[in-house]
Design a binder for these strands. Structure first.
Length: 455
DNA sequence: AGCGTTTTGAG
DNA sequence: TCAAAACGC
């Protein structure tokens, strides 16, 4: 008897419940671990996401001593074909959250059923998992704070033990799949991505835990310090499991650890929100701003994407995004506020750009984060909360180091001066662009438009 | 997880 | 007089 474990996006080697369950189901038989490159999805994906995924697939293959089977094609046909080729009785898969992924899973499950191959959903890339945190009446939460309380109350399993030995069998790779991964890794204009793979993720994690966790509460909002965990790209692909991180700091009682757990809870909250409201991926979750008037200012959006708005902290963030495939969370909020409130652009435009360039790009976290800023989400910031890009910059990057790191044209300005080139002699001497809008005016315009739809 | 303005109250 | 608190968007 042989089991196929289809990992797809879940690229963990160890502490993987699905892996252990599949091993147990295989009994004396072999395990075949497979990853499917689905050209229909692959061709539509952004270059950054593809490269990051490809790098981690390769890292997993290496960790499995070359035993990862790469498939290329429509999962509805290639998975049943592989199952038949290796005489599999079951396919084990980590549960999907994204509604589009759930629909694809269902199609594959049906195709397998025709061949009497069992579809087993095991594990989830969340500590608890979407749909499982509910109130006394069995309803999902709509507000973060009660959700996070119930989430902690709910608890989660310990990470699964590292399997000492896996009875792995290597099935032949599909040449097209290998070629697709190689092509993704050699794309031009790729950002400097983090080191792929579980070992690299855990090294980064331990550094964060030892050097930054206790001060996380204060330092996480300071983009110049790089005091955040940077686990998001790994969590996105399941390279590390949140239960591994939670178990590692289970005895930490400090404020820093509590705040870090809260950040993981936000990720689970948004996955839950998407699970309950599949449409909210690309549509306003709440009708609060129905009828809101939006603009489509092509040149301004282009300047925003390139980091040439003339607002230092906004430009620093947008350039970090292009350079690293990652942006500090505080700066994500500032840049998102700028697009939605200063340029009056509908949030999905920004969410799409972020998804195209973030290695950690995740529909649930990214798009609900955008809805939080835009004021249309569950537990969203009220629309009238308009970030002032200058005071935000001065407050959270008081040294100006973050701005100077990403905006070379402002390196000649010392300290806070980097946030206000217009207020200093020679501020524009090195080619930094003028501000593309007047923040005070656009803030009032945003509030006026809000007033018009309120009621 | 805001901002900008007005009001309040200690000194 | 001025910083903190309150308030409305």
């Amino acid at each position: 008897m042989t089991s196929v474990l289809w990992l797809r996006r879940d690229l963990r080697r160890r502490d993987h419940p699905a892996l252990l369950a599949a091993r147990d189901a295989a009994g004396d038989g072999d395990l075949v671990v497979a990853f499917v490159v689905d050209p229909r999805l692959w061709d539509g994906g952004g270059a950054v996401r593809k490269a990051w995924l490809a790098a981690n697939v390769k890292a997993l293959d290496e960790a499995l001593d070359g035993n990862l089977t790469l498939l290329h094609g429509d999962p509805r046909s290639v998975v049943p074909e592989l199952a038949q080729r290796v005489s599999a009785t079951s396919v084990h898969v980590s549960r999907e959250t994204n509604p589009a992924g759930v629909r694809r899973d269902e199609a594959v499950r049906d195709a397998l059923a025709e061949r009497d191959v069992e579809w087993v959903e095991t594990g989830t890339p969340y500590a608890v998992g979407p749909g499982l945190v509910v109130n006394g009446s069995g309803d999902p939460y709509k507000v973060f704070t009660p959700f996070s309380k119930a989430w902690r109350q709910h608890g989660w399993p310990e990470p699964a033990a590292t399997p000492r030995e896996l009875p792995l069998r290597h099935a032949r790779n599909d040449a097209d799949a290998t070629a697709a991964l190689d092509a993704a890794l050699s794309a031009s204009d790729l950002p400097d991505l983090p080191e792929p793979g579980e070992e690299a993720a855990l090294r980064r994690w331990r550094r964060f835990r030892d050097e930054h966790l206790t001060e996380y509460d204060d330092d996480r909002d300071r983009p110049a310090l790089d005091a955040t965990s940077r686990m998001s790209p790994y969590l996105k692909l399941g390279v590390v499991h949140p239960r591994t991180l939670l178990a590692d700091i289970a005895d930490e009682r400090g404020k820093g650890a509590d705040t870090f757990r809260d950040e993981l809870a936000w990720r689970e909250f948004y996955a839950d929100v998407l699970h309950q409201n599949p449409r909210s991926a690309w549509h306003d979750l709440r009708p609060a701003l129905q009828g809101m008037r939006y603009d489509e200012p092509e040149d301004a959006v282009e300047a925003w994407k390139k980091g040439e708005t003339g607002f230092p902290v906004v430009d620093a963030g947008m350039r970090q995004l292009l350079a690293e495939g990652w942006m500090h969370n505080r700066v994500r909020m500032i840049t998102a506020s700028f697009l939605t409130k200063d340029l009056h652009v509908w949030w999905p435009v920004g969410a799409r750009h972020f998804l195209d360039h973030l290695a950690d790009g995740d529909v649930a976290s990214n798009n609900h984060g955008w809805q939080w800023v835009a004021g249309t989400g569950t537990d969203a910031s009220p629309y009238f909360r308009v970030f002032n890009p200058v005071t935000q910059g001065e407050k959270f990057d008081p040294s100006g180091d973050y701005v100077r790191r990403w905006v070379p044209e402002l390196r000649h300005l010392e300290g806070k001066a980097a946030h206000e080139p217009w207020a200093h002699d020679g501020g524009y001497d090195h080619g930094y662009p003028q501000r593309i809008v007047d923040h005070k005016e656009e803030r009032e315009e945003a509030l006026d438009r809000y007033q018009a739809v309120k009621g």
